[in-house]
Simulated scan of single mutants.
Amino acid sequence: MADITLYDLPGCPFCRMVRSKLDELGLEYDTIDVPRSHAARTEVQQVSGQTGVPVITDEAHGVEGMPESSDIIEYLEETYGENGA
């Protein structure tokens, strides 16, 4: 099990951007596919307090339920990019 978990909706362009950044950085991560219906996204809501995706958790750095693709990408670059890790 990887330290990073991505809550993902297949076909979501914002989720795709986060997956691309994770892959670009060579990071191992687990993916949890969320339902299309916001009302059924109870797991992502418990983790992040909202139902939008993408959301990541990163156990290695104490990140629990970070939303917003731009924030996630910035975090990944700062934490795992050339200047981070």
Rank of each mutant, 00 (worst) to 15 (best):
L25A: 10
I72M: 05
I4P: 04
A39Q: 06
E82H: 00
P35E: 05
L9H: 07
Y75A: 01
Q50N: 15
N83C: 03
L22Y: 08
D33H: 10
I73V: 15
V34W: 02
V63I: 15
T5H: 00
C15G: 10
S69E: 01
G11C: 10
Y7Q: 06
E64M: 11
G52N: 12
G81W: 06
Y7D: 04
L9M: 13
I32T: 08
E74V: 13
E68P: 02
G11E: 09
Y75P: 09
V53C: 09
Y80S: 03
I4W: 00
L76Q: 04
P10Y: 11
R16T: 09
D3E: 11
G11W: 09
T79D: 02
E24T: 13
G65V: 11
C15D: 07
Q50D: 04
D8H: 13
S48M: 13
H61K: 06
R16Q: 06
T51V: 13
C12L: 10
E59V: 13
G84A: 15
D30W: 02
A60P: 00
S37L: 12
V55M: 12
E24R: 14
L6R: 03
G26Q: 07
I56P: 12
D23G: 08
H38M: 13
E28A: 14
G65D: 05
T79S: 07
S37M: 08
H38N: 05
L25R: 02
L27N: 02
F14L: 15
P13T: 12
D58T: 11
E64P: 00
Q50F: 10
I73C: 10
S70C: 13
P54Y: 09
D71R: 14
V53E: 01
Q46Y: 09
C15I: 12
I4V: 12
D71G: 09
Y80R: 02
G11V: 11
E74Y: 03
I4Y: 02
E77A: 12
I4N: 02
P54E: 08
E77L: 14
G26K: 09
R36M: 08
E78C: 13
R41H: 08
D8Q: 03
Q50E: 09
E28V: 12
T5A: 03
G62E: 05
C12G: 03
